[in-house]
């Protein structure tokens, strides 16, 4: 009963609410600056959740280590003649694959999150519809960064010596993070469309495997049949992989880097509006 007494003795604010004054203060939509503040608040929420559930870092930690070692020793000899000759080809490929896995987790987690009661409140608040989607994606930048660095470190440990030096490596990782964030909009869109987290997982797998394996991530594109090469050439993952190779191995900002960035911009331009629209319609 102490509750009741505190409630009566400490009114929130003494003034009474004047509805017509509140109506006059309302705005038709969130301004760009307001939207940015909302996105950052949602990002901070996602970070707090990450800290409390470290198990969601498993894919980020294990996949780079496991796949780098496994692929290098299994395919190295067959594809490039030796493990050390394969590493400059493989590490950028693994990097792209890891980034895509993290993207997939973004979609699955968004779907899980959307099924919770708190999303009802997000929808009832006067916030930009993009904020609940974009916030977690900003927090996910940390996961892309972590996964990229780990992949590179695993490569270095088994003998990869990138010719691009420190700058080239930093450039490659930054590009991977940008690409991961951009491609994540595809999976975010799936997250808003699908009926359950499991179905997001299933559909995402079907998208992720062709995107990574039907690219130049693990094998040189020239060895593929012509019709497949055609797909590999338009696959944005191929461009990202080539660009990261150029950065890592030669420290060169080539046309491939430009194509990769353009590819990312196109993906965001198409899928971000789709995701927001499907999210708003879900209410």
């Amino acid at each position: 009963m102490t509750t009741t007494s505190t409630m009566t003795t400490t009114p929130l604010t003494p003034r009474r609410i004047d509805p017509s004054a509140v109506v006059a203060r309302t705005t038709a939509r969130s301004s760009v600056q307001e939207t940015w503040v909302q996105i950052l608040a949602m990002a901070r929420r996602a970070l707090k959740k990450m800290r409390r559930k470290p198990e969601q870092f498993f894919d980020v930690l294990i996949q780079p280590l496991l796949f780098t070692a496994m692929f290098a020793f299994i395919f190295g000899g067959a594809i490039s003649g030796s493990v050390s000759d394969y590493l400059p080809v493989l590490i950028p490929g693994i990097l792209a694959q890891t980034a895509l896995t993290v993207c997939m987790a973004t979609g699955v987690q968004l779907r899980e999150d959307m099924d919770k009661g708190v999303f009802d409140r997000f929808k009832s608040l006067p916030i930009a519809r993009i904020a609940p989607l974009a916030g977690p994606m900003i927090a996910d930048l940390i996961r892309y960064g972590l996964a990229s660095v780990l992949t590179l470190v695993a490569g270095l440990a088994i003998g990869y010596r990138p010719g691009g030096g420190v700058l080239g490596c930093v450039g490659g990782i930054v590009l991977t993070v940008i690409a991961g964030w951009s491609l994540a909009w595809i999976f975010t869109w799936l997250g808003t469309m699908a009926r359950s987290a499991q179905s997001v997982q299933g559909i995402s797998m079907m998208i992720m495997f062709p995107l990574t394996f039907l690219s130049n991530a693990f094998v040189p594109a020239e060895t593929l049949p012509g019709w497949l090469q055609a797909f590999v050439k338009v696959n944005p993952v191929s461009h990202v992989v080539s660009a990261v190779r150029d950065l890592f191995n030669d420290g060169a900002v080539t046309a491939e880097v430009g194509w990769a960035v353009i590819g990312c911009v196109v993906v965001v331009a198409v899928f971000a509006p789709l995701a927001v629209r499907s999210y708003s319609r879900k209410m």
Binding site: V22, V23, T26, T27, A28, L125, P126, I127
Partner: peptide
Amino acid sequence: EPHRIRQL
């Protein structure tokens, strides 16, 4: 005007 309603 859903955005205004959400402010009210």
